[in-house]
Amino acid sequence: MNVLELKERVVATPVWRSIFRHRYLDSNRNRALTVFSNVFLHIHPVKVPEKSLRLRHTMCLGGLSFALFLALTVTGVLLMFYYRPAIPQAYRDMKELEFVVTSGALLRNLHRWAAHAMVLFVFLHMARVFYSGAYRPPREFNWVVGVLLLILSLLLSYTGYLLPWDQLAFWAITVGTNMAEAAPLIGPKFKFLLLGGNVIGENALVRFYVLHCVVLPLAAAVLLAVHFWRVRKDGGVRPL
């Protein structure tokens, strides 16, 4: 029995067919099936206007922002294996990543730079959407979701900033939370709740950690789902 025969046999089994619902990309039918039977690809329509493939149409900014979100999730989860939100272990763990853990420094670098890039890309994405007028009806609400996602990106990046517990982190957060404190009425209370106390200490570190690793990413994921869903429902990237 040669390899091709074996392959044919495997592909024909009920198990295989229960996982992969179509065969090769040999026909438009199978290509369409690829998209809409795949949970990851089905946010796309089966067909798109040829014009929208052009790069300058979107600059890929939204897609890249999402790609960065994915990259941040993957690197972030890996970094969590070696991170303890405690003082001074948090800082020590940064050193462990740098000196001991295989590829630890690379992962931390990727995470850090991707975070900066995401803030930038989301902002640029917003500008692009504005100038191409893609916020106009019927997409008003998706614009609002986008603005919320921009704020979430900022908060994600900001909460991650404290986690290494170095001087840069500590004082950046000090300045940032004092800016928030200036808000009338709710400012001081907000700061108190955010820091879990009056000073930036272990409580604040744990709170920022939970926000950074659980609360904000989940919120972002939900809003992203809504964002993409609306893109599908309200139409693609064609200008009106």
Binding site: I87, A105, A169
Partner: peptide
């Protein structure tokens, strides 16, 4: 080529000059 910044251990008694928020703020 560029390592993510990591300064010395946080020291609440020593404010660097200048103390800056993250760049986007």
């Amino acid at each position: 080529f560029y390592d993510a910044p990591l300064e010395s251990l946080a020291n609440p008694n020593k404010t660097p000059n200048p103390a800056k928020a993250p760049w986007y703020f």
